[in-house]
Simulated scan of single mutants.
Amino acid sequence: MVEQLHRTGGVMFRGSGSATPQRSISNTELGQRVETSDDWIRSRTGIAARRVIGADESLGELSGLAAERALAMAGWSADSLDLILLATSTPDDLFGSAPRLQARIGAVNAAAFDLTAACSGFLFAVVTAAQYLRSGAMQRILVVGADQLSRWVDWDDRRSCVLFGDAAGAVVMEASDEQDDLQGFLLRSDGGRGAVLQLPQSSERAPLVGDASHQRGGFEPIQMNGQEVYKFAVREVPAILEALLQKTETQADSLDWLLLHQANQRILDAVAERFSIPNEKVLSNLAHYGNTSAATIPLMLDEAVRDGRIEPGHRIASSGFGAGLSWGAALLRWSGPA
């Protein structure tokens, strides 16, 4: 388990942004493609609709919009950034999409790289960013969580296609000697269970020369054992959150918000019940967007900041979990613009 062992400097969350595709596909519409229904999907997942990137949109465009909105909230210019971390498992370019994002928003002074941890990616990226800021190596960092899972869904598999959607969300963070908005974290991975949720390479091979062959590039559709993923989440997420609350000497009733990866409403409800957190403190927009992987947490965060639910000084317990398998928890404080 990776955890925060000591503090040097602190970090502050200064702005958030998000972007979603224009096209929303309802459960009823999806029922025209596969044998399913609105009642079947809602009762098992809490999802009513999902957004899918259209022919005139791209993941890069959504990432850029989310980034620009986060910068605008903070009142920062893009050229003041030192680093861009793009958490994604579905890049536009397998060599890395973060440099293209850097160019798109004009962050000419920033280094940029991708980070892949599937649905845990955003939280892992925030923790990574904090280390650069705390060390004094950097002053301002943009973290984006963005995924286009519609590329890799088997749209004829009614068990999995109903779950996923596309989106991007972002935060901007800066170093601080005054306070620390990342008040604690724990990160975990277990590759031994990774086969229950994966997006594996295609095994197709083609002749090369003589008796040699080469593997063709490409990936299979998302493969998921839904029952095992659900059991993993309802067991591990409460456990890591409880460990984090104990480590930071935080009482659950002192939290302002619970912000979990938006995968299944039943998971959100089970975790909230475990800590006796009332429903009105559980942030959820799952019904409108489905599971957008690395984008779910920053998308929900941005919505709640912009509609006034999350205010400066609010404390948030967050957890990301998913493929890898990977999962983590963080205790956050929202500062907002200076």
Rank of each mutant, 00 (worst) to 15 (best):
S318Y: 08
T88N: 08
E204M: 14
D56T: 00
V237H: 08
T36F: 04
V34Y: 05
V34K: 05
R14E: 09
Q22G: 03
G308P: 00
A233Q: 13
A338C: 08
E311S: 15
F185M: 12
L123W: 06
G10W: 07
A70H: 06
R205T: 08
A107C: 08
N109P: 04
Q183D: 01
L187W: 06
D39Y: 14
S58C: 14
C161A: 14
D307C: 12
L260S: 06
S202Y: 12
I240K: 11
L325H: 06
A195N: 14
G75H: 07
Q198M: 12
G290E: 03
H261A: 06
S189I: 06
Q183W: 01
D38G: 06
V172T: 14
Q251F: 04
M1N: 14
R134M: 10
K247P: 00
G290Q: 03
G17W: 00
Q215M: 05
I222R: 01
V126Q: 10
F95S: 12
G96E: 10
L123Y: 07
T88E: 04
V172C: 14
L299I: 08
R100C: 02
A233W: 04
E311P: 03
L268P: 02
V34Q: 11
S43P: 13
M1Y: 09
D79A: 01
A48Y: 12
V234S: 09
R274Y: 15
Q223T: 01
A323D: 03
L186R: 11
A78C: 09
L259W: 05
A304L: 09
Q183E: 02
L149Q: 13
G322N: 11
I141H: 08
E3R: 15
A130W: 03
I47Q: 00
D180W: 00
R69P: 15
A129W: 03
A206P: 04
R23A: 06
S18M: 13
D253G: 00
A129E: 03
R151A: 02
F113I: 02
R151G: 03
L62Y: 09
A72D: 12
L101W: 08
R306I: 01
A317D: 02
R315D: 00
L186I: 14
I141E: 05
S135F: 03
A110Y: 03
R7Q: 05
L62Q: 11
S77Q: 15
Q4I: 11
S319V: 06
D56G: 03
D39N: 15
S276H: 04
G121L: 08
T116E: 04
I47W: 00
W152P: 04
R50P: 01
C119E: 02
D302V: 10
A239Q: 14
H314R: 00
A167Q: 07
Q32C: 10
S63A: 13
A130T: 05
M73P: 05
L241Y: 02
E228F: 00
D82K: 05
E61R: 07
Y289I: 08
S176C: 14
D114H: 05
L5T: 15
N109Q: 15
L283K: 02
A272C: 05
W40Q: 11
L94N: 06
L115A: 10
R216E: 15
E249D: 11
Q215R: 09
L5A: 12
E303K: 15
G218M: 07
V234P: 09
L325W: 09
G308L: 05
R159D: 10
I277L: 12
A103Q: 15
Y230W: 07
V171R: 09
G217P: 08
I277C: 09
R188Q: 10
F124I: 11
L325K: 02
A55D: 10
A98L: 03
A48I: 10
